[in-house]
Amino acid sequence: MDEIEIETRVNGLARRGRVEPRLTLADYLREHCHLTGTHLGCEHGVCGACTVLLDGAAVRACLVLAVQADGAEVTTIEGLGEPDALSPVQEAFRDHHGLQCGFCTPGFVVSVTAFLRDNPDPSDDEIRAGLSGNICRCTGYQGIMKAVRAAARSTP
């Protein structure tokens, strides 16, 4: 199969490469960009572990082809915060025990980042609805809810 050249900005850095047309964005990020924070769980768009921001929108990277990200800005969990400081959402997850095993955490943090940008003062019902596309197999939802509430209070 012929490869296609794509250009993206991943976490603010220009990336250029040749990819197979059916390569997923998740695999592109992990294999070509060496960014392993985007986790692969179900590979069917159900669990949310692979959530990234594509031009600011939260998407399941296992359902998006890398060629669809051509010309786009991609932000992964590695692109949130600063090298020496966590983002408000990352801090809230740490401070309020919004993680257990950590496998689902990158997807939750990226989803919450987009969710709070669009809904900075959510109710508990809105938080539950906003996170309904992310699954925690450890059932850490109480800590996740606390973390989202705290992040909403601290996010400008």
Rank of each mutant, 00 (worst) to 15 (best):
Cys101Gly: 07
Asp95Ser: 15
Gly81Lys: 07
Phe115Arg: 01
Ser123His: 06
Gly107Glu: 07
Val110Tyr: 02
Gln90Val: 08
Asp118Cys: 08
Gly130Ile: 06
Phe103Glu: 03
Thr105Ile: 10
Leu86Pro: 07
Gln100Leu: 12
Ser111Val: 08
Phe93Cys: 04
Gln100Pro: 11
Gly130Arg: 01
Gly107Leu: 04
Ala114Ser: 14
Thr105Met: 09
Leu86Glu: 05
Glu82His: 14
Pro106Thr: 05
Pro83Val: 10
Ser123Met: 08
Asp95Cys: 12
Gln90Asp: 04
Phe115Ile: 01
Pro88Arg: 00
Asp125Thr: 13
Arg128Trp: 11
Val109Asn: 00
Gln90Glu: 05
Ser87Asp: 15
Pro106Gly: 04
Phe103Ser: 04
Ala114Tyr: 03
Glu78Leu: 02
Leu99Lys: 01
Pro122Thr: 11
Asp121Lys: 15
Val109Lys: 00
Thr113Tyr: 03
Ile127Glu: 02
Glu126Val: 08
Val109Ile: 15
Ala85Tyr: 04
Leu131Lys: 02
Asp125Arg: 12
Phe115Glu: 01
Gly107Met: 06
Gly98Trp: 01
Asp95Glu: 15
Gly81Val: 08
Val110Asp: 02
Glu78Pro: 03
Gln100Tyr: 11
Leu80Met: 10
Pro120Thr: 07
His96Gln: 12
Leu131His: 04
Val112Pro: 01
Asp124Ala: 14
Val110Asn: 00
Gly98Ile: 02
His96Arg: 13
Asn119Val: 14
Ala129Cys: 03
Phe115Tyr: 09
Leu131Tyr: 02
Asp124Thr: 13
Asp125Tyr: 00
Phe115Gly: 03
Phe103Pro: 05
Glu126Gln: 15
Phe108Leu: 14
Gly98Lys: 00
Ala129Trp: 01
Thr105Glu: 09
Val89Thr: 09
Leu80Asn: 05
Ser87Arg: 00
His96Leu: 06
Arg128Leu: 13
Ser123Val: 09
Arg128Lys: 14
Arg94Cys: 12
Pro106Ala: 02
Ala92Phe: 03
Pro88Thr: 07
Arg94Asn: 13
Arg128Thr: 12
Ser111Cys: 13
Ser111Ile: 05
Ser111Arg: 11
Asp125Lys: 11
Ala114Leu: 05
Val109Met: 02
Pro122Phe: 06
His96Lys: 10
Ile127Leu: 06
Asp121Thr: 14
Ser123Ile: 07
Gly107Pro: 03
Leu86Tyr: 07
Asn119His: 15
Phe115Ala: 06
Thr105Ser: 14
Asp95Lys: 14
Phe108His: 02
Arg128Pro: 12
Pro83Lys: 09
Glu82Val: 07
Ala129Asn: 12
Arg117Trp: 07
Phe93Ala: 03
Asp95Gln: 15
Cys104Val: 01
Gln90His: 09
Asp124Pro: 08
Gly130Glu: 11
Ser111Lys: 11
His97Glu: 14
Asn119Lys: 13
Leu99Trp: 01
Pro83Ile: 11
Gly107Cys: 06
Ser111Met: 12
Gln90Ala: 06
Ser87Leu: 06
Arg117Lys: 15
Val110Cys: 05
Val112Thr: 15
Asn119Gln: 13
Val109Pro: 03
Pro120Asp: 10
His97Lys: 10
Leu116Glu: 03
Ala92Asn: 10
Gly79His: 01
Arg117Phe: 05
Leu116Gln: 05
Asp125Gly: 08
Asp124Met: 09
Val112Tyr: 00
Asp118Asn: 13
Asp84Tyr: 08
Ser132Val: 02
Ser132Lys: 09
Ala85Gly: 09
Ala129Gln: 14
Val89Asn: 00
Leu99Val: 08
Glu82Asp: 14
Phe115Met: 12
